[in-house]
């Protein structure tokens, strides 16, 4: 049964990649330009899609809150702010300098959130509100940095704020993909312990899981994932909300199967979203974050409403 689902998901992924490579703003490109232009872009979509989906799944377990997502919690904003500061300070020239500064930004925002949630006993929605506010803070910071940074300031700021895959280059993309896969593998190896977090932190600790240590590791790994994704493709929202939600419907909540499904469907979702961003308003190109927000924001509202209904 589960094997059939894996098979089906793989077929969908292959089809998505095929469509992503074959359609675009211009038709009838020769093989070379496809490899140079579209393939890196599709690969970046795969890499960012799976990173964000897995980061979302881990954050949801970590905060015991199915509404969490790197974007709504402001972690992506933190990463973007880190990257923007990195550009202003000239880290862009270094190898992985941008990804590293994005990681530090994500980590900083994540630590603020964890501190907030540990010091006060927050309800799910209050935590999200704090996250959204952190997000605003980060985005404003990005706008300031980019305006100071260079003449094309706002243009670049838009890249960070709305998500855009057009900067993909083959070398960078392959490295990003490789590193993301390793990070996700490291998360997946702890999938049973991550399951325990689904029951809430106290119960997780009662189940024999070393909560503080694992929390540190998960925070570190997800910050790296988000940092890497934001550094390469800007802030793409709601993917970490949509994909885990549907993966859970497909294979249940246990992470042993759910994380692989997040990898596959995260990749599918972003490849297709990017395809839509490219062809929907031809010859203009939309930032891909616009497409994911159009699906994600209504889903988010629906989840809040149905959550409230089941409580009352």
């Amino acid at each position: 049964m589960i094997i059939k689902k894996y098979l089906f998901s793989f077929i969908v992924l292959i089809m998505a990649v095929y469509f992503g490579v074959s359609f675009g703003a211009t038709s009838g490109l020769d093989f070379d330009s496809i490899v140079q232009l579209r393939l890196p872009r599709v690969l970046l979509a795969i890499s960012s899609g799976m990173s964000l989906a897995c980061a979302g799944a881990v954050l949801q377990a970590l905060f015991t809150n199915p509404l969490c997502d790197p974007y709504t919690l402001g972690v992506s904003s933190g990463a973007a702010l880190g990257a923007a500061l990195g550009i202003v300070l000239g880290f862009e020239a270094w190898f992985l300098g941008l990804a590293l500064s994005a990681f530090i930004g994500a980590l900083a925002f994540m630590l603020v959130l964890i501190l907030i949630s540990l010091k006060t006993r927050l309800t799910n929605l209050t935590l999200l509100l704090c996250g959204v506010m952190l997000g605003f803070l980060g985005s404003s910071g990005v706008a300031i940095c980019m305006t100071i940074g260079d003449a094309q300031g706002m243009q670049n700021a838009l890249f960070w704020l709305m998500g855009d895959l057009s900067r993909a280059r083959m070398h960078g993309v392959l490295l990003t993909l490789f590193v993301s896969l390793i990070l996700i593998f490291m998360l997946w190896r702890k999938s049973t312990q991550l399951d325990a977090f689904l029951m809430g932190e106290e119960n997780a600790s009662g189940l024999g899981v070393s909560v503080p240590k694992l929390r540190r590791q998960f925070i570190f790994l997800t910050s790296l994932l988000v940092g890497l994704s934001v550094a390469s493709s800007g802030m793409i929202g709601f993917l970490g909300l949509i994909v885990p939600h549907f993966s859970r419907k497909l294979v249940g909540s246990l992470h042993f199967n759910m994380i692989p499904f997040c990898i596959i469907w995260g990749a599918v979702a972003l490849v297709l979203a990017d395809l839509m961003a490219r062809v929907l308003l031809k010859p203009y190109e939309l930032p891909v974050g616009v497409i994911t927000a159009f699906v994600g924001a209504p889903l988010f509202i629906w989840m809040i409403l149905s959550d409230g209904r089941s409580r009352n």
Binding site: N65, D195, M199, E202, G206
Partner: peptide, 28 residues
Amino acid sequence: ARSVVYLSSELQAEFPLTALETVLMGRI
């Protein structure tokens, strides 16, 4: 966890977990 187990008044159910999956967590 293998020596003492604590049962609270409410089992959290934020995520769709089956009863069997929940019990299996006891083996973590």
